[in-house]
Each structure stands twice: as structure tokens, then as C-alpha cells.
Design a protein around this nucleic acid. Structure first.
Length: 323
DNA sequence: CATTCGTGAAGACGAAT
DNA sequence: ATTCGATTTCACGAATG
């Protein structure tokens, strides 16, 4: 008990091997200090939140060019089409033949032209979804989207998940593994990278694969792709739990303060981040006199009341406060 | 009555062997 | 593949309000 537990927590965490590895822009931890990297769309940079190190500058803003054009060039200088996105299997860049039987001016087509167009459509479809990789992607992206919705994850996370999946595909990680599994793993990793982690059980219930395979695939994915996924901190969960329980800002701040104190005393080592976050939220609610039962917290955090009990008492003790 | 608290057994997990 | 240690969870009953 005296020496610090080395075991890194993992039903939720899966610590990445300590040797942080090289390159791989947007998805890695900062090579200097290990901090989290965030994309700065405005400057097209990827920056470390800890030390400010600019890791990559080659990111391209996919948004439209909203230049104001002077009268004369308004029509021909604009770029046309939706921004490139990772969410469509061809990044939304390919041309698609419309299903409507009208020409460019909105006139309906003659029957001869209709036949011709139908034939073209058939081939268009065949070419666009030609190889395995493409079809694979289509299915995977559909799954990612579905699960992300179910988990209330935003576009940022989906984009990241899609990017990870693409890399997995390119690295030939898919053969022998289910698309479902890899899609689930990619989404889970993306959620953590983007700072809105979902716990493994949470993700597992919306996935079509079982938890065991999910974890296996996730570990594999992390290892093979050298994704430097930073451990989820309890802090990341506090916000979500608190809003699910509609708690006051004051309580949230209190919870975070408790976590900080606990951290200085190494109370968090080897403990489940969700458990700690849940306990902090509960303890904070006590301190601010908001009514909140262990059962309620337990429900939204997916942590047993027992764990909350034990943790929150430790937290309060560490903070030298009593309820 | 609802909520909280404490306990011991049981399960799951990573690490070590 | 098995064992080991730490942790979380479950089930229960007691205490508290």
C-alpha cells in the first residue's frame, strides 16, 4: 500500500505503452510534453494545449472560400460544391449523377435520353463503389455515424473517427477483423482524443459487437497506429455528468477542485476515472447543498454506489473537508 | 420510507511468471 | 496458461434522516 500502484487503470483506460512514439500529426500527444493536441482551424495549425508547440501546419481549412468578390468576378471566381469531409467515403469530392430525369435547365428528358442516363447511372454507381476499400468505408462510416448519434457525439468526433478509420484501412488493419469492431474502436478513440470520452460499456451497448472484441480491436488499433491517446482524466467526465444531472456551475467548479486536490495526493492512481468523476460530482453536490443521491449519480455515470461512497470519502478527506 | 453506510464474497483485469 | 494483487461490483442489513 505504501508504494504507488504502478498498474495503470484499464477497463476504461487501456494505457498506451509508455514509450510515446513518433510522428502522426493530428492524433498524437505532444512530442515535447505529452499534452493534448488540438487543431486550430483558423490558423491551420495543430497546437499543443500544454506547451504551445506547433506540431503541424499543413492542415487545410475545408470550409468554403467566403471571399467577397468584386462585381465582375462574382460568377466565375467562386469554388463550387460542399467542403471536403471525411464523413463521405469519397470525401464528398466525386461527381454524382442525379437521379432526377431533368437536364441542366430543369427540362424533363426524352425517353431515349432517360434510358441513356439510367445506363450511365448504373456505371457511375459501379465505379464509385468499385473496390473493397470503398465499400468497406461506406459501411464503416455509416456505422460510425449511427453510433455517434446514439452517444450524442458531435461532428468533430465523427470526423476524427473517420480519419482514424481511413488510416486503419490504409495500414491494412482490417483483413481478418470486423468492420463493426474497427468502426467502434475508431469512434471510441476519437471520442477520447476530442476530449469527450465515453466509457467502454457505453460504447459497447450501441455497437453491434460484444465488449470483449471491442476492447481487443481497440488495443490493436492503438498499437498499430501509434495513436498517442492520452488517458481520460476524471475531469473530462465531470462536465458531462454534471449536465446530465443539471447541476450548478458552482458544483462543477467544486468537483473539479476536489479532483485537483485528490490528484496531488495521488488518490487517482489506478482508480477508475469514471468512478472518481462520479464521486467528485457527488461530493461537490454535498458541499454546495444540492440535493443529489448516490443512486442518481450512479445511474448517469455507470458506476456503482459503493464505488462512489468509497471514492467521495477519500476525496473529502484529502481536501480536509467534511460533509 | 428513502437514503446512506459498511462488509465480505465474487468477478474482471493487467502484470508477472 | 496460470497465478496474483488491486479494484469494482453485488447483495445484504443496519443506521440515519
Amino acid at each position: 500500500m505504501s508504494d504507488v500502484a504502478i498498474r495503470s487503470y484499464s477497463s476504461d483506460e487501456t494505457p498506451v505503452s509508455t514509450e510515446v512514439k513518433k510522428r502522426t500529426v493530428e492524433l498524437l500527444a505532444c512530442p515535447e510534453c505529452g499534452g493534448r493536441l488540438v487543431a486550430d482551424a483558423e490558423h491551420g495549425e495543430t497546437v499543443c494545449t500544454e506547451c504551445g508547440l506547433v506540431v503541424a501546419e499543413r492542415k487545410i481549412d475545408p470550409g468554403p472560400e467566403w471571399r467577397n468578390l468584386s462585381d465582375g468576378e462574382q460568377t466565375d471566381a467562386s469554388r463550387v460544391g460542399a467542403p471536403a469531409t471525411n464523413l463521405l467515403h469519397d470525401k464528398g469530392l466525386s461527381t454524382k449523377i442525379s437521379w432526377q430525369n431533368v437536364d441542366g435547365y430543369g427540362q424533363t428528358l426524352s425517353s431515349r435520353q432517360r434510358k441513356r442516363m439510367n445506363r450511365l447511372r448504373t456505371w457511375d454507381e459501379r465505379f464509385r463503389t468499385r473496390n473493397h476499400g470503398e465499400r468497406n468505408l461506406m459501411q464503416a462510416l455509416g456505422e460510425i455515424d449511427r453510433m455517434a448519434s446514439a452517444l450524442g457525439l458531435g461532428k468533430e468526433v465523427r470526423e476524427t473517427a473517420a480519419a482514424i478509420y481511413r488510416r486503419a484501412l490504409e495500414a491494412k488493419l482490417l483483413p481478418g477483423r470486423s468492420i463493426e469492431g474497427m468502426a467502434t474502436a475508431a469512434l471510441y478513440a476519437a471520442a477520447r482524443i476530442e476530449g469527450s470520452p465515453r466509457s467502454i460499456p457505453e460504447v459497447a451497448v450501441v455497437s453491434r459487437i460484444d465488449e470483449m472484441e471491442f476492447k481487443r480491436t481497440y488495443r490493436y488499433l492503438i498499437r498499430e497506429l501509434n495513436l498517442g491517446v492520452t488517458l481520460a482524466t476524471p475531469d473530462d467526465y465531470v462536465g458531462r455528468f454534471a449536465s446530465a444531472l443539471s447541476l450548478s456551475e458552482e458544483t462543477v467548479a467544486q468537483a473539479r477542485a476536489l479532483l485537483r486536490i485528490g490528484e496531488t495526493k495521488n488518490l487517482h492512481v489506478g482508480k477508475s476515472p469514471t468512478g472518481l468523476a462520479a464521486a467528485a460530482v457527488y461530493a461537490a453536490a454535498l458541499l454546495t447543498n444540492e440535493k443529489l443521491t448516490q443512486d442518481e449519480v450512479s445511474a448517469v455515470a455507470d458506476v456503482s454506489t459503493v464505488t462512489i461512497r468509497v471514492r467521495y470519502q477519500e476525496l473529502l478527506e484529502a481536501a480536509g473537508k467534511t460533509a
